[in-house]
């Protein structure tokens, strides 16, 4: 059976004055109906560019160099801009990070929701209006009839993000891409929006690609997780694989650098240095210069994806049969163990 969305060896570059910046260097993943994939990574890791490339929304200098994006078997990379316009908002839609700037400030909320419905589903204004009210109701906005005639500035940040979600959901998309949808919001509002997205996913059964750098959010929403570094997926697995049995030193670093309520006075496990310059991607493993566990081979040859289990893959030489047996740093290990003991004492909060 074919998957809903298959991305194969996607490469995206940007032309700049200084040369070609290789933002995404061969990313592959697939997604089923109703599934949520979280892509995590630091800024500059290529996670947002990947999502933009799926929608073919790359800004002027960006282009897809290689690879395929198969939506139900049809390659989107080969589609023209005109054909893409029919797909965006209908089959794939997007929720952006900043609800303050992703709505048109001079247009009433109602019209912004109805736009897609009229264009993609050939609804007349009356039906579109009915559906828009329904959508606002669905995303939990009180008094939708009144709110329809208001402008974005009359909404709070959380409410605006709900409107953006309503727009994205208007045509029941098969894939919803959410690029840091809650980063600009307060924790309590964030929790509400995440709950809302999960509820709606259950109702309409769409697949979600969730892009974030917040591992707490990932643990909350994801079924599968892809960890990106320097334009590549360096570890991929189910959410439990990644959080309870991480294999890549970069994933260790990410997990270790977040304090949990149980962390005490010990230092946080910080990843030294900064991500590489993608103008000149390093030879060998891109993470090697920041990796205290780097092996000699890391500076020469890039590690392939090693299989850990049927669902779990990681690109690190540490998984090679000949590699020395290296344990994750103590703080990360403690964390993994602490998590493994379910029924945490603060679980009742």
């Amino acid at each position: 059976m074919s998957k809903l969305l298959e991305v194969k060896d996607l490469k995206v570059s940007f032309d700049t004055y200084n040369g070609e910046v290789q933002a995404v260097r061969g990313v592959s993943f697939d997604l089923d109906k109703g599934e949520t994939l979280a892509i995590v990574g630091e800024s500059g890791s290529g996670k947002s560019v990947t999502s933009m490339a799926l929608m073919k929304l790359l800004a002027g200098q960006g282009f897809i160099k290689e690879g395929q994006v198969l939506l139900e078997g049809v390659d989107l990379v080969k589609k023209s801009e005109k054909e893409m316009q029919k797909i965006r908002g209908k089959d794939i839609s997007m929720v952006f990070q900043d609800p303050m700037t992703s709505l048109n400030p001079t247009m009433k909320i109602g019209n912004q929701i109805m736009e897609g419905l009229i264009k993609h589903q050939n609804m007349n204004r009356e039906n579109a209006k009915k559906r828009a009210i329904e959508l606002l109701n669905q995303v939990g906005i009180p008094q939708p009839e009144v709110r329809m005639n208001q402008y974005p500035h009359q909404f709070s940040g959380g409410m605006r993000q709900r409107v953006v979600i309503a727009i994205a959901l208007a045509c029941n998309p098969k894939v919803l891409i959410a690029d840091e949808p809650t980063t600009a919001l307060d924790v309590t509002i964030q929790a509400q929006i995440l709950e809302l997205m999960k509820e709606i996913q259950k109702e309409v059964d769409s697949a979600i690609i969730f892009i974030t750098h917040d591992l707490g959010v990932v643990a909350n929403v994801a079924d599968k997780v892809a960890v990106m570094y320097a334009g590549k997926i360096i570890e991929m697995g189910t959410v439990d694989d990644i959080f309870y049995n991480p294999k890549h030193p970069y994933t260790w670093g990410l997990l270790g650098s977040m304090p949990t309520p149980d962390s005490t006075d010990e230092e946080l496990y910080a990843i030294p240095g900064t991500p590489p310059n993608m103008l000149k991607p390093p030879v060998g493993d891109a993470f090697a210069p920041r990796n205290e566990f780097a092996l000699e081979i890391d500076t020469v040859m890039e590690p392939p994806m090693f299989k850990v289990s049927d669902t779990h893959y990681a690109a690190t030489w540490l998984l090679h049969p000949d590699a020395p047996n290296i344990e994750p740093p103590e703080t990360v290990k403690q964390r993994m163990q602490g998590f493994a003991n379910t029924g945490r004492k603060d679980g009742d909060k």
């Binding site: 707490g216 959010v217 643990a219 909350n220 994801a222 959080f243």
Partner: peptide, 11 residues
């Protein structure tokens, strides 16, 4: 209660 923790089982 709203803080997301990096722990799927807890979440």
């Amino acid at each position: 209660s709203a803080i997301p923790l990096p722990d799927p089982r807890y979440e």
